[in-house]
Design a protein around this nucleic acid. Structure first.
Lengths: 137, 137
DNA sequence: TATACAATCTCCAGTCACTGGAGGATCAAG
DNA sequence: CTTGATCCTCCAGTGACTGGAGATTGTATA
């Protein structure tokens, strides 16, 4: 029999608050947990992976509806493949933009960090880095 | 004299709600706006860039305290250069992780999108993509 | 010049995604 | 059998907005 996890284990291993896990169950992001005879929630590694996905997704700035839609890609049987492809393509564009902005920000921050070590204060380009170029200023 | 923007212009050009701009002023993320004789807020392109930075930062998953700290890199005179470098280095690590996760997610989504076009449903690796490898499963 | 209607103002209540605590039951170690 | 950690439900509070009421101002058209 495979190893079962208590809610506290899940919380520790994913850096999530116990209350947050119960909240995710309530809104249907996590399935209703199995219960022990005494009524405590019991999880397995699939729940662990799903929760880790949710938490990382949130840290990356995805909303709960967006995460729901990404999870649906994994949840749905493969007969909805065309739908899945459409959802995937929708997210791909936005993700490209985010990666580009983070990379520009990274290089701006690297400039700040390294130029200070060199003893000279660099022109700070942090705002410019992710203020974005799509604005006609 | 340079062009001045009303709050609605700022809102349109950055995709922000008017109320949100006022909220950012209230919590000190944006400076107190200059007012016209009749009391309306009036902005310039520096405000526009600052607001664009804030909005993109939020979309990238940074909290308001984090954005405050990034903005401080631009706001502070360069005598606090060592502090600035420390702040920059703190963010750099986290940003590297986010970029890596987004790139893994991008490739998983690309797999979903392209394999569906090929007529075959791919094994969906979306959860695995950003569930993360740091979990000992 | 009158008028209408869009944009702004302040203030305040509501939403989303958690977060924390009260009050009580259960489990595991000593 | 006690003690302390963990769990349960329920509910109130926080952070970051979002929307609306009611009043004022700005501007475009008749």
């Amino acid at each position: 029999m495979t190893k079962r996890l208590a809610i506290g284990d899940l919380a520790r291993q994913t850096g999530t608050k116990v209350n947050t896990i119960r909240f995710y169950e309530e809104i249907g992001l996590l399935p209703e947990a199995l219960r022990t005879p005494s009524g405590r929630r019991s999880y397995d590694t699939a729940d662990l992976r799903r929760l880790a996905f949710i938490r990382h997704g949130r840290q990356l700035g995805f909303s709960i509806p967006e995460i729901r839609s990404l999870l649906a890609l994994s949840d749905q049987p493969d007969r909805d493949c065309a739908d899945a492809a459409a959802i995937a393509r929708e997210h791909l564009h936005e993700i490209g933009i985010r990666i580009a902005r983070l990379e520009t920000l990274r290089s701006a921050l690297t400039d700040v960090a390294t130029s200070c070590e060199g003893g000279r204060a660099a022109e700070c380009r942090v705002i410019e880095a992710i203020a974005g170029t799509e604005l006609a200023i």
